[in-house]
């Protein structure tokens, strides 16, 4: 009996420590985000840093995000055609493709690709700066690391992600159009007309909102894990992995929440 109680106690202790650690992490992350937002809304700002980050996050992510959208749009059109044909609904390819791309796949896949590329790079860069004392050096050189490192990355990601997703959406739709007209025998003008007819302002707005939210989480996770990394090269490696995984989870979770709020009726 006493051993059973002891086992239950051990299990509860283990469970409790996991829950405590989870809440501690959420608290630290919330505080980090609060400090970062405080620096974002009040000057001084660093325009050169902001411009550099916009270039890194936006311009240099274009190829990977664009190709992802192009291939996914094509594959989606092919699948809708196959599935739709079973119900004599093959003509829905343009409408379903544009809705699927703009509402979900464009922002989500774009977000995931940027998270893989950018959150990891931010965590590695800030993590290396932390373990080589460059962040402490910034402080001794009269520079607030949150203003100089964190704020420009978050602002840049929030501003640039909607533009990236806009391009991603266009390329995704183009991928579907290319496949449908070149392989499935769709008329080009009719396909584009149907696409325009079914695309609504809400679809585009929700896509942009999602992109901005994803940009915030990508930069926040990259900066948070990098800024708080410790333990040398291994610590930086852990920070990089954690940044990407947590950004992925937050992107998928926030996508679900926004979808339910906007389209859930």
């Amino acid at each position: 009996m006493s051993s059973l109680l002891s086992n239950i106690a051990q299990t509860l202790i283990a469970l409790g420590s996991v829950v405590l650690a989870l809440f501690a992490t959420i608290g630290k992350l919330t505080r980090f985000a609060g400090v970062a937002i405080g620096r974002i809304v009040r000057p001084p700002w660093y325009p050169a840093q902001l411009f550099e980050q916009m270039l890194i996050i936006g311009y240099f992510s274009l190829p990977v995000v664009g190709l992802t959208a192009l291939f996914t749009g094509s594959a989606l059109a092919q699948q809708i055609y196959i599935g739709g044909s079973r119900f004599n609904a093959a003509s829905t390819v343009p409408a379903v493709t544009v809705i699927g791309i703009v509402r979900e796949l464009g922002p989500v896949l774009g977000g995931l690709m940027v998270a893989g590329r950018v959150a990891s790079a931010m965590a590695a860069e800030l993590g290396t700066m932390r373990v080589t004392e460059q962040i402490d050096a910034l402080t001794t050189l009269r520079t607030d690391p949150f203003r100089y490192l964190v704020a420009p990355r978050i602002i840049a990601a929030v501003l640039v992600m909607p533009l990236l997703v806009l391009v991603s959406n266009a390329l995704g739709v183009m991928g579907g159009w290319l496949l449908a007209t070149q392989r499935l025998g769709f008329n080009s003008a009719a396909y584009l007309n149907t696409t325009a007819q079914y695309l609504e302002a809400d679809d585009v707005i929700s896509s942009m909102v999602k992109a901005g939210v994803f940009g915030f989480f990508i930069a926040l996770m990259g900066c948070y894990h990098g800024y708080n990394s410790s333990g040398g090269a291994a610590g930086v490696g852990r920070a990089t992995t954690n940044a990407v995984v947590s950004a992925f989870i937050l992107i998928l979770l926030s996508n679900l929440i926004i979808t339910v709020i906007v389209f859930g009726g």
Partner: peptide, 27 residues
């Protein structure tokens, strides 16, 4: 308070992304 101090870090802690003159004139 911190602006009254200079510090030479053990590993130098120079900013990799900046040239030498911008490191020195950072503050």
């Amino acid at each position: 308070h911190q602006s009254r101090f200079g510090m030479l870090f053990q590993g130098g802690a120079l900013f990799d992304s900046l040239p030498v003159w911008r490191n020195i004139s950072f503050a």
